[in-house]
Simulated scan of single mutants.
Amino acid sequence: MKKIFTGLCITSMLWMASPAEAATTQIKIDDVVVKTDTAPEQKNNRTMVPLRVISENLGAQVDWKDSKITLSMNQTTVSLNVNNQTVIKNDKKEQLDVKPYIKNNRTYVPLRFIAETFGSQVDYKQGTVSIATKPLLIENEKIKALQYEYHMTMGGIIQEIKGNAYHNAIYKIFQEEKGDKVEAPKEYYWHFNLDEPGSYYKLGQYDFMTHDNNSIKQFDIYSLNGPFPEELLEGYPKVLLHDVSENSWYIFSEQAVNSIQQLINNASENGFSTVISNTVA
């Protein structure tokens, strides 16, 4: 009798749970299934996601202070507070259907509200939330993917990075962080050349690809070869940026290189990067 009663209780609980609360929601951004170490949740028929999904894959900048979260992108700013339904969007108060909250050391925020606030289109169908963000435009061409190539001792690897937020962020670094224009170095290669002081080796090649799989813009990053005595390297910048499309060279910074690499790492961790060629022996 006790077993029958227990079974009836479990069945009743399943009946009482709404389909939205029971469903496991999958998130797709720009047709890429987002990988996340913490699953999205449904609260009051609203999809709540870890803050990282927003900050890394939609391109919003995040400022966290005490329990206040400020998200900003372009000319739009949204401020939320944990366990508070009131938000401030561009200095105007609005009410959320669900409060942001913390669970298992993750901060959950409402996906649709934030995505639509930052100009993305959101669609829900059969357990999948699909978000379409604004593509990067170069010379009025929509960018489909970024191909990142780097070489190792015995071969090279090419990664294809999707996701408009990543394309926009990386392209912005190239455009805004390049320094003074300089002459092309006398010696530059894909590999190390330890025989020629002042020579450079290519750290990486970045091709912004259109929908017909053509590279419309290419940037190469070069690093100064070493080690050599300091007096032989005096006057040589440590990092150079080559705008291959315009055949122009610029001083670049190690900080900018690290920022680009962090974006590529985030793309890989979140499912937006795939290896399309690997010739490493």
Rank of each mutant, 00 (worst) to 15 (best):
K142D: 07
P100F: 01
F174K: 01
Q85S: 15
L96M: 05
V109Q: 07
E94C: 07
E116L: 07
V49L: 06
I143Y: 07
V129K: 03
I161S: 00
G59M: 00
N83Y: 02
N74P: 08
V78E: 04
S120H: 05
L51W: 06
S120K: 04
Q159E: 12
K65H: 13
G119C: 03
N81T: 15
L71S: 03
N81K: 15
R46V: 09
F113T: 06
E94P: 06
M154E: 15
K99T: 14
P110C: 05
A132C: 13
T107Y: 02
Y124H: 09
L51C: 02
N57T: 03
V49E: 03
Q61I: 12
P110I: 02
N83H: 09
R106I: 01
K134L: 14
F118W: 01
K65I: 10
N74G: 12
L71I: 06
S72P: 04
K99H: 12
K142T: 09
N140S: 12
E116F: 06
T86H: 10
I69V: 01
K65D: 14
K92L: 14
Y148K: 06
I170Y: 00
M73K: 15
K134N: 11
Q95F: 14
V129L: 07
S55T: 14
I143P: 04
D91R: 15
N81F: 14
